[in-house]
């Protein structure tokens, strides 16, 4: 572990039991995370991408410490008075509708230390200004605001306990393009000012390319490619990363939509595939793919695929 890592995940597994047999034992398990190793670098932004159901939000819950992994180790490299905060996709349902905005913003602080009202209000006013909200918003209620404004409130709330790490779970997917740009600029400014570490979960690759230093591509509860986002997105090595990048609609495309993909279904995470998890959908699958794959260091990335030519291990980020 290097000194500049703020959190480290080693071999994280997360299983959820489902169903019950006649003796009350689970009938099986949903394998949501299947061996995640990640080092989160201080002051940087790590993008996490992958299809719905691949385990992004479960990973966020493990990072937040609100779920204990079934297996594996989470190491936190910051003091007990600091914490990890989160901003969710849907600012409508993630904010307490019965509280005025100043209470919403200071909820994380109030939860750990009961401070006087005047002090909390002053803190809320500070943070509101920081995220570009006018002071008169403090006594209004979340439902009175637009989606973009609510997301500003959610960001102010996440900042209130002075966290080291903020998990952003699809924070702009519900927003319009013009508002998304405002929020992304705000996140960048706050990071520069406060040295925040972000874990940015998204399915929008162009946003990840713009915002993230590193990217981890997830498939069926595993990271299949991890590296500097510039390198990974410009020259993806894993067949799944390539498929994902090829599928993104782009304004620059010429020649229409191409051929229809034949298989877009994720394999079930109740019975994990033997061999490489991506085998069923992989056009390059061959003999070497019948065994589980490990991460192989290759140039500026780590890749979980037998066809990756290993090069001298290199540290992933600058």
């Amino acid at each position: 572990m290097t000194t500049d890592s703020v959190m480290t995940l080693s071999n994280i597994h997360m299983r959820f039991p489902f169903g019950e047999d006649w003796r009350g034992r689970p009938r099986g398990y949903v394998h949501a995370l299947n061996g995640i190793d990640l080092e989160i670098l201080r002051g940087k932004t790590l993008g996490v991408v992958g299809e719905s159901g691949c385990g992004k939000s479960t990973l966020a819950q493990v990072l937040m410490g609100i779920r204990k992994p079934s297996e594996g180790e989470v190491t936190r490299n910051f003091g007990a008075d600091h914490d990890v905060q989160i901003v969710f996709q849907d600012p409508q349902s993630s904010l307490n509708a019965r509280m005025p905005v100043w209470r919403v913003i200071t909820e994380p602080v109030f939860a750990v230390s009961k401070r006087p009202k005047a002090e909390l209000r002053a803190l809320a006013a500070d943070l509101a200004a920081k995220v570009g909200l006018r002071p008169e918003v403090l006594d209004r209620y979340p439902h009175e605001f637009s989606g973009g404004q609510r997301q500003r409130i959610a960001i102010a709330r996440a900042l209130s306990s002075d966290p080291d790490v903020i998990v952003l779970d699809e924070p702009t997917s519900a927003l319009d393009i013009s508002i998304q740009a405002q929020i992304l600029n705000l996140l960048k400014d706050l990071q520069a000012e406060r040295g925040l570490t972000y874990i940015f979960i998204s399915h929008d690759i162009s946003v990840v390319r713009y915002l993230c230093d590193e990217v981890a591509v997830m498939y069926l509860g595993q990271v299949v490619e991890h590296g500097a986002s510039e390198a990974v997105l410009a020259a993806p090595k894993h067949p799944y990363t390539r498929l994902l990048l090829d599928s993104i609609p782009t304004m620059r495309a010429t020649g229409g939509l191409g051929e229809a993909l034949s298989n877009t279904d994720l394999p079930s995470n109740r019975n994990l595939p033997t061999g490489c998890f991506f085998k069923d959908r992989c056009e390059q699958a061959g003999a070497g793919c019948d065994v589980r794959q490990n991460m192989v260091p290759s140039e500026q990335a780590q890749v979980r695929c037998c066809q990756t030519v290993a090069t001298t291990p290199q540290k992933v980020s600058a």
């Binding site: 508002i179 998304q180 740009a181 405002q182 600029n185 162009s206």
Partner: peptide, 22 residues
């Protein structure tokens, strides 16, 4: 302005061209 606000071709070092207001 909408097209400019897209992160697709944006320079990661520079702020995005956002549209002010709502």
């Amino acid at each position: 302005a909408l097209i400019e606000a897209l992160p697709e071709d944006a320079d990661p070092g520079a702020p995005l061209a956002s549209i002010p207001g709502t």
